[in-house]
Nucleic acid binder design. Sequence first.
DNA 1: TGCATTGTTCGGATTATTAGAACTATGGAA
DNA 2: TTCCATAGTTCTAATAATCCGAACAATGCA
Lengths: 125, 125
Amino acid sequence: MRPLFHPSIEDVTVEAILHALSDPVRVAIFAKIVGSACSQNCSNFLNIREKNIPKSTLSQHFKALREAGLIRGERRGVEMHNTPRCMEVDKRFPGLISAILNAHNIQLQAKTKPASAGKRKTATR
Amino acid sequence: MRPLFHPSIEDVTVEAILHALSDPVRVAIFAKIVGSACSQNCSNFLNIREKNIPKSTLSQHFKALREAGLIRGERRGVEMHNTPRCMEVDKRFPGLISAILNAHNIQLQAKTKPASAGKRKTATR
DNA sequence: TGCATTGTTCGGATTATTAGAACTATGGAA
DNA sequence: TTCCATAGTTCTAATAATCCGAACAATGCA
């Protein structure tokens, strides 16, 4: 089996990061990896966002996140440990990841409680 | 000709924004629209980033930016005036757009002058 | 050795992106 | 008014990317 490829931090591009995080499943995965204290293996995400993701698709998603430079994957025995590369990425592109994750959270909150402050003006032209 | 569609700000999603800006041509267009004082028409971008973009492709790119909620397009006579929607978007997703544009600038600078401060450590592992 | 578990790779179907050609819409000049 | 130039859009077909089931590889354990 082919060894995992990780770009060195100076080869990481904004385009690749944005593309990787423009997929709802992938942001959800990334957000969970960032938010959890210990590293996560892939199968923890077989049903994320109330959807059943086939594991072949999951594998591709993790590959996309890895090759965008967002996570680091390390095989440990039969499973894989995924850790975020936020520190490095943040040094290269300050504030980028936190702004994206923050926006992602705002959107989630607006979706789960739509009756709150979101509708003060009925339709913002 | 079909009227232009613009999403209202609460329908704008992070995914759509990231996807729109994950294309090198589209970020370049958007950055220029944001950076210029007056509104820009589409044909100003027929050759951006030293590439010749066919106008049918350009038209699709502008549609993508519009429908992501990033710009507002307004037909004035024969041409179109494009203005950014940064204010609205920033109210919804604070810091998102500026972080992306900032990262984009960092990347551009690193590309145009690769011999400067970018290589203090020969290879950042 | 045999098997369960975890993740990858392959192949075909579906979907998105690209760009040339034909088209629409507007403003001016003759 | 008629004709033409200009600015964008839509149509269509080729190409590329994505998705997911099936087959596979790699590890750990009974």
